[in-house]
């Protein structure tokens, strides 16, 4: 993940408190989603940025997860997500497994 983004997320977590924050990820490849999910929970897996070795343990969801889908306006969800969902190369299950796995590590 972009190094400056990591720095900003770290600062937000410190200032606002992990309990008030939720991270939502939009990468539609499991590789990208996994890196993002790991970075905000267990730390930057590439050991390149400010979150290397920093375990923020932020709750993280993928935009394709049912929890997110059912919470937001359905017409907006269709506009923003429907086409991309039709164009996926991987299964929704494989993609959302990344954020689920990252959350399991928080328990």
């Amino acid at each position: 993940m972009d190094l400056d983004n990591q720095a900003q997320i770290k600062e937000l977590a410190e200032r606002l408190g992990v309990e008030n924050l939720v991270v939502v990820i939009g990468a539609l490849d499991s590789g990208g989603a996994e890196i993002a999910a790991m970075t905000v929970t267990s730390g930057d897996p590439t050991y390149a940025g400010p979150l290397a070795g920093v375990s923020l343990r932020l709750p993280v969801y993928h935009v394709l997860e049912p929890e997110v889908r059912s919470s937001v306006d359905q017409a907006a969800y269709q506009e923003e997500v429907e086409l991309m969902e039709m164009a996926l190369e991987e299964s929704v299950e494989d993609i959302v497994a990344t954020t689920r796995k990252a959350r399991e590590g928080l328990d």
């Binding site: 937000l12 924050l21 939502v24 939009g26 937001v72 306006d73 923003e80 997500v81």
Partner: peptide, 23 residues
């Protein structure tokens, strides 16, 4: 809740996620 939206240019972009969770 306060949300951090991490989008992807080949997936759902940050501002699109932002729009959704704001609803």
């Amino acid at each position: 809740k306060k949300v951090i939206a991490l989008g992807d240019r080949d997936g759902i972009q940050g501002p699109a996620i932002a729009r959704l969770v704001e609803t």
